[in-house]
């Protein structure tokens, strides 16, 4: 009993804080999403599913689908870039691996706004890339690089790539090198070994990295706002507008709830997949 009390004393403030400032606020969002917007931007406490029906309205559905597509493409591109990079790091001499990894993670720790802003400077009509290409005489007209889906995806990949590399590297470095050698010893080629041994065993890292990028991309606000230039909306921007411009909190809440739903579904699927693969290994 004594130890239980002690644990409670240690854990209490932290869990209490999370309960008060995360669970309860999210609970409020949950409740709001079933109410209606009041005439003057307040909330009418009338129970309804209208907000969720509204989200399926073609205008909003389109935004949801665009968000999903952008997040999906971002995840795919990030994976394609990250896997070989993580593999290259894991093949480096053990002593130098932390340095390579540190170099990957360093940009990740700088300000997100600034990292995104850097791409405005690069992709601008008068930006560095257009300028250089024109200077080299390769193009006569500036390319429309900014304020489109391309810019958003570039920005998202740029911001989250380090984390995907880290996640994949983590599962690669946990891999016993003798397993790969065993596969080659049994007659498999390097490619077969990669496809049949390495890739399946690093799936947890791939899954963790993918979910992270997908969830953070689909709910992103800053990147579509700055690099999409308001021409392209994602769910995050829609939520932002419902709270700050349209003053429709219930609808904004419903959209947020849907984002949380997507996030929980993905995490749940991952947890089951991990449990299953652990079970198989035992």
């Amino acid at each position: 009993m004594n130890t239980r009390l002690k644990t409670a004393a240690y854990v209490g403030p932290g869990l209490g804080w999370l309960a008060l400032f995360m669970i309860i606020p999210c609970g409020i969002i949950f409740v709001y999403s079933f109410f209606e917007r009041g005439t003057y931007g307040g909330i009418d406490f009338i129970f309804s599913f209208d907000n969720f029906n509204r989200a399926l309205d073609p205008i909003y559905l389109n935004i949801l689908l665009t968000s999903g597509r952008i997040a999906g493409l971002t995840t795919l591109i990030a994976l394609i870039l990250a896997y070989p990079a993580a593999y290259a790091i894991s093949c480096a001499p053990t002593r130098r691996q932390p340095v390579f990894l540190f170099m990957v993670m360093l940009p990740f720790w700088s300000n997100y706004l600034i990292r995104t802003y850097a791409w405005i400077v690069l992709l601008n009509r008068e930006g560095l890339i257009n300028n250089s290409l024109e200077g080299l005489g390769l193009i006569s007209e500036p390319l429309p690089l900014l304020y489109n889906e391309f810019a958003i995806i570039t920005g998202l990949v740029y911001n989250y790539l380090p984390f995907v590399i880290l996640a994949i590297y983590a599962s690669l470095s946990r891999l016993n090198p003798e397993i790969r050698e065993a596969s080659e010893d049994l007659g498999a080629s390097s490619l077969t070994t990669f496809l049949r041994v390495t890739l399946p065993l690093t799936m947890p890292g791939i899954a963790a990295g993918s979910i992270f990028v997908f969830v953070l991309s689909i709910g992103n606000f800053i990147t579509p706002d700055l690099l999409g230039g308001g021409r392209l909306m994602m769910v995050g921007n829609l939520i932002y507008d419902q709270f700050l411009s349209a003053r429709d909190w219930p609808f904004g809440s419903a959209l947020s709830l849907m984002l949380i739903g997507v996030m929980m579904m993905l995490l749940f699927t991952q947890a089951i997949a991990v449990n299953k693969s652990m079970g198989e290994r035992v």
Binding site: M22, C26, G219, N220, I239, F243, S256, I260, M263
Partner: peptide
């Protein structure tokens, strides 16, 4: 999951949730 949630929950969602909470 509870300890992981604050790291991965979209910040816009946490932001509006907290705004609603404080306003209420």
């Amino acid at each position: 999951a509870l300890l992981f949630a604050p790291m991965i929950i979209p910040d816009i969602v946490l932001a509006i949730a907290l705004l609603s909470f404080f306003t209420l």
